[in-house]
């Protein structure tokens, strides 16, 4: 437990969730190929993400980063290859079942506009996981607490700032108690002063044992919070390494070029 939360908050969070410190799963991508029609935008990507670690995926636009992410939870059905959770193939699994174990956070939040923050978070534990309504809403309260929005539980998304909306979206994904979290440019649509709040929240999840795959343009975050950084271009992994290796000692010309443009 690295967070300093008020004890009341902590107690509540712990009573409604068994793993307040997360136990993320190991994630393995095996020769994952994704295509739009005949055009392969992600080609034979293999990658291991150790349990409880964070992998940041960086790369220029059109490199297939987001598509790769959507292939992991099969929002985009892979053309070939496999995704392993804790060593087990997920190929045979129903996509809906798989997605209950893999949380995803989107660039544009995609909160449900007709529902309050609390309802956004409670909806899937209630309707998908079939928790009792009361239990689902308690869980949702705890998750909102966790992202610092206890006071905003009854606000509709349109009455929240972008940063708050994204934190609700993170709470919503966490409420399904996922083993892996995917972040698709989660801070790209935020006002600059609100970016750090969300990044810090993500870093805190990462520090508490969540397995995370983060597509990001925030190089500072990648350097600070990632255990592994992956540089993708044109649908393939060009370079993989620790943040130090990627940012301080880039090997390939393409990565050097990319870093010189973004840093």
């Amino acid at each position: 437990m690295t967070m300093t939360l008020p004890t009341e908050t902590r107690r509540r969070a712990m009573t409604t969730s068994a793993n307040y410190d997360y136990s993320g799963a190991a994630l393995d991508l095996r020769d994952l190929t994704l295509a739009y029609g005949d055009i392969e935008v992600v080609r034979k990507i293999s990658l291991r993400v150790e349990p409880g670690t964070t992998t940041c995926i960086i790369g220029p636009s059109g490199s297939g980063k987001s598509t790769l992410l959507r292939g992991i939870n099969r929002l985009h059905e892979p053309k070939s290859g496999d995704v392993l959770l804790d060593g087990g193939s997920t190929l045979a699994e129903q996509p809906d079942q798989l997605r209950r174990k893999i949380g995803m956070v989107f660039q544009h939040f995609n909160l449900f506009p007709d529902h309050t923050a609390l309802e956004n978070v409670a909806l899937s534990p209630w309707k998908v996981k079939r928790l009792a309504k009361k239990e689902a809403f308690e869980l949702a309260h705890a998750r909102l607490d966790e992202v610092g929005l206890r006071e905003r539980a009854d606000h509709k998304p349109r009455d929240l700032s972008g940063g708050q909306q994204q934190r609700v979206a993170i709470a919503r994904a966490l409420a399904m108690e996922p083993q892996v979290m995917l972040f698709d440019e989660a801070t790209s649509a935020l006002d600059p002063e609100l970016v750090n709040g969300v990044l810090n929240l993500m870093a805190s999840l990462s520090g508490r044992g969540m397995t995370m795959v983060v597509v990001t343009h925030e190089m500072g975050f990648a350097r600070r919070a990632a255990n592994q950084v992956v540089f993708m271009d044109e649908g393939q992994i060009v370079e993989t390494g620790t943040p130090e290796e990627i940012f301080d000692r880039p090997q390939s010309a393409r990565l050097q070029r990319f870093l010189s443009e973004v840093l």
Binding site: T2, M3, L5, G148, D191, G197, N200, A203, S204, S206
Partner: peptide, 17 residues
């Protein structure tokens, strides 16, 4: 937006690891 930043800091959730 700075008000929100301040609010987060006092809530303690924005603290990084």
């Amino acid at each position: 937006g700075l008000r929100e930043v301040a609010e987060l800091e006092t809530a303690g959730t924005a603290e990084s690891r």
